[in-house]
């Protein structure tokens, strides 16, 4: 499966990558804003996307709406510091398949990815 990581923090992009060793995911790109992400989605049609919300140029919610029109089967998981319930609900209404709050550690990232990919905890997708 192809994965796109969208976050304006390079440290956060690499933190997510570091936790993917157990998954059969090919990272097809990283983007630091929503506009870059949309171009990468058009080019690579990733199966899975991790999406920050607070980003320059285009925020993650707007980017999510765009992605759902150009690649609606993408499984998008929001990873954001915006920890209010309304933002989470908005993202899910707009097509996100998962939502986790920063700060994100290995355990909660893995749990969220397992749920997104419907992976058995003891197995591989």
């Amino acid at each position: 499966m192809k994965l796109l990581i969208v976050d304006d923090s390079s440290i956060m992009q690499r933190t997510i990558q570091k936790n993917l060793n157990d998954y059969d995911l090919e990272i097809v790109g990283t983007a630091s804003n929503g506009s870059q992400a949309i171009e990468l989605v058009k080019t690579h049609k990733p199966d899975v996307i991790t999406m920050d919300i607070t980003m320059p140029e285009m925020d993650g919610i707007t980017c999510l709406e765009n992605i759902m029109t150009i690649h609606p089967t993408a499984k998008v998981m929001m990873i954001t510091a915006l920890s209010d319930k309304l933002t989470g609900l908005q993202a899910l209404e707009k097509g996100a398949r998962g939502f986790i709050y920063k700060p994100v550690n290995s355990e909660n990232l893995t749990r969220a990815l397992d749920k997104l990919l419907k992976r058995n905890v003891n197995g591989r997708q």
Partner: peptide, 26 residues
């Protein structure tokens, strides 16, 4: 980058209490 990310998370998490009208910048 790390300084920006930690400030983002600390401010963004305030929305758990103050709601979505506590709007933060990049």
């Amino acid at each position: 980058d790390m300084a920006g990310e930690i400030s983002n998370v600390i401010a963004g998490n305030i929305r758990a209490n103050l709601g979505s009208n506590f709007i933060i910048s990049v």
